[in-house]
């Protein structure tokens, strides 16, 4: 138990971690936008009157929620290039895996939000002559999104944590850079402690904010 911690080598390699952080951030932003956007489309697809669209959206959600995201990333990385004639690098594989997975989860959040709006709102909008899309955009979504902001923020935090899985296909992000530093300076304990701390420092304020938002919404509803 008398191990002496030495963070010197980690801080000497701060630029490597900075490059990793940039990679993490890039992947996070892309997956956040794609995941949340696609999630809304799929949630609407599940409400569609067209049976094949409804069925496909449900199958998509079930499939991506009931398989591990790491399996999805590896599938896109090793398996997909065999059937489609395109080059799939680590970045693209990670984007596909994480975005589609998050889309399935956020679709369920949107669906819950839309369902929570009273049917009277739809009827009232119809009565003053709005069509379905107008009602959705002007009446339903603004209220639904307000209610699901805490759940969506939670999803965002999950996406941020998920980006570390991209290191498995050697995409350059924080954990991947950490592995590199640890193998060069033989200090895995310090490196992984610092990386965990970085995630904690970034995500903890967001998590606290979500708690506060939840309480605020619970009071105002």
């Amino acid at each position: 138990m008398n191990y002496i911690w030495n963070f010197q080598d980690v801080f000497n390699n701060w630029w490597a971690l900075a490059i990793g952080a940039a990679g993490t951030l890039r992947l996070f932003v892309v997956c956040l936008v794609l995941g949340m956007g696609l999630g809304l489309i799929i949630a609407l697809g599940r409400r569609s009157r067209n049976r094949p669209i409804r069925w496909l959206s449900t199958a998509f959600v079930e499939f991506f929620r009931n398989t591990p995201v790491l399996v999805q990333i590896l599938w896109f990385y090793y398996a997909l290039p065999i059937i489609v004639p395109i080059e799939i690098g680590p970045f693209l594989a990670a984007i596909l895996g994480i975005s589609l997975n998050s889309a399935a989860y956020s679709a369920e959040i949107y669906r819950g939000g839309i369902q929570s709006i009273e049917p009277g709102q739809w009827e009232a909008a119809k009565a003053i002559g709005m069509n379905g899309l107008q009602t959705l955009r002007r009446v339903i979504l603004p209220q639904a999104i307000r209610r699901i902001i805490p759940a969506l923020t939670n999803r965002g935090v999950e996406i941020f944590k998920m980006t570390t899985l991209a290191s498995v296909v050697a995409y350059v992000e924080l954990l991947q850079q950490g592995k590199l530093i640890a193998s060069l300076s033989f200090n895995p304990l310090e490196v992984y402690t610092v990386i965990a701390a970085i995630f904690l420092i970034i995500l903890y304020p967001i998590v606290r904010l979500t708690y506060a938002l939840e309480r605020h919404l619970a009071r105002s509803d």
Binding site: V157, K161, L175, G178, A182, L189, A196, L200, L203
Partner: peptide, 17 residues
Amino acid sequence: TTPPLVQLFWFYFGLPI
């Protein structure tokens, strides 16, 4: 609030030290 993969690496590579 930390990624499970980082935790796993910490326990596997760091803790034994």
